[in-house]
């Protein structure tokens, strides 16, 4: 058991445990904190997958921006722990939980049956091919940020422009949604 295995198990337990604690914690603030733990664990797994740029992006965007936004809204709305006024009965909750567990176990069994199909006998990851053939059609995996930018600016030129436009639309939509309009009040 070498260091990579140890790190994988550590961060796998961290991310899954953080996710489970997030789902089952009563108070939204502690749920957000557990979510940050889970997201940082996933970022560490990205490092193990040798995608260093995406790991940094994960920490910056998710743990830095998205969760801070969540915490702001939690504190702005002042939502406390879910009190006992449970409309959703325990029976219904149990049914849903059972459904999700069955789904999960089925997926795991399916994966376990085809266990050998993806396992590689040499090191964990295949060797990186340094050849540059057909660069515009298939981008070779690389740990460098520059190849990332190259892919974004050549093969994925249209998607990155569309996503930029989507961000603009989201920004305008959020501004309009949160603007206080007096005539919308009497719509109710």
């Amino acid at each position: 058991m070498n260091a990579v295995d140890l790190l994988f198990w550590l961060f796998a337990v961290l991310s899954v445990g953080g996710g489970l604690s997030m789902v089952f914690s009563r108070h939204p603030v502690s749920a957000a904190m557990f979510m940050i733990v889970s997201l940082v664990g996933v970022a560490a797994l990205f490092v193990l997958l040798e995608s260093f740029f995406l790991a940094i992006l994960q920490v910056l965007v998710y743990a830095g921006a998205v969760m801070v936004l969540f915490l702001f809204i939690i504190m702005l709305l002042d939502v406390g722990p879910e009190a006992g006024k449970g409309k959703l009965s325990h029976f219904k909750t149990g049914i849903f939980g059972l459904l999700a567990t069955v789904l999960l176990v089925g997926i795991l069994l399916t994966l376990g049956n085809s266990y050998d199909s993806l396992a590689l006998d040499q090191s964990i990851w295949p060797e990186l091919s340094e050849s540059k053939d057909g660069a515009s059609h298939s981008l070779p995996f690389s740990t460098k940020v520059s190849s990332f930018g190259y892919g974004l600016m050549t093969k994925y030129m249209l998607p990155i422009q569309v996503s930029g436009f989507m961000l603009l639309a989201a920004m305008v939509g959020v501004i309009i949604l949160s603007k206080k309009t007096p005539d919308r009040e009497d719509l109710k």
Binding site: L49, W125, F141, S147, L152
Partner: peptide, 12 residues
Amino acid sequence: FSRVGSNLDGGI
């Protein structure tokens, strides 16, 4: 899958 297939598309 991106790492196993040595393909950057998944990362993007």
